[in-house]
Each structure stands twice: as structure tokens, then as C-alpha cells.
């Protein structure tokens, strides 16, 4: 969890990509297209999309803890108040927002 060399910094607003890519991915569909913020940069990790298909996981991908307001993810139909949802997302799934 050392050096966070990625392109985003805590506080940066990000939008999760809506890519429809085949194979093993670790970005849940409920969060795709949603806007949140980088809460924390966790460092670089082997890429599960490669590991899942027998690859070596390289190059490593920067992993972020990304925060979302519950209302942004699910809509305002519930009184979510300040409730938040945090998801661990790799850099190549994030665009600046």
C-alpha cells in the first residue's frame, strides 16, 4: 500500500467507465457511469483482468478507494442522508469528472 503513483489524488472527482469489456472484471455494474471522488490511493496492484485469464497481472494498476453518495448511485428515492458507498476501483476504470 506504499507509494501512490497514480494519476488521481484524494479529493479528485471521477466517473467510473461504462466499458463493456469481455472477461473477468472487478468493477461492479451498479457503479459504472457514476460520479464519485477519490478517497484514498492504495498503490499499485496486479491487474485481476489479466490474472483471471492466466496472465501475469502486469503491468500493475493503481487501485483507489472511491467514494459515492448513495443518492448518486441509486437515485434519490430513498432518504439516504449522508450515507456513502465505497468501492475499490482500478485506475483504468476511472475518468476525471
Amino acid at each position: 500500500m506504499s507509494g501512490a503513483a497514480g494519476k488521481f489524488r484524494p479529493g479528485d472527482r471521477v466517473r467510473v467507465r461504462t466499458d463493456d469489456r469481455p472477461g473477468h472484471v472487478r468493477t461492479p455494474s451498479y457503479v459504472r457511469g457514476k460520479i464519485g471522488w477519490v478517497e484514498r490511493a492504495y498503490g499499485d496492484f496486479l491487474n485481476p483482468e489479466s490474472l483471471g485469464h492466466g496472465g501475469d497481472g502486469l503491468p500493475k494498476k493503481t487501485l483507489y478507494l472511491v467514494g459515492f453518495h448513495q443518492g448518486e448511485v441509486w437515485g434519490e428515492y430513498k432518504p439516504w442522508g449522508r450515507d456513502r458507498l465505497f468501492v475499490d476501483i482500478y485506475e483504468h476504470w476511472l475518468d476525471p469528472a
Partner: peptide, 11 residues
């Protein structure tokens, strides 16, 4: 085996 391979097989 890698955990992600098993996950992929279940997916």
C-alpha cells in the same frame, strides 16, 4: 491457480 482464475470460472 490464482483466485481471479477461479472467480472467472464461476463467472
Amino acid at each position: 491457480r490464482r483466485t481471479d482464475e477461479l472467480r472467472r470460472a464461476r463467472e
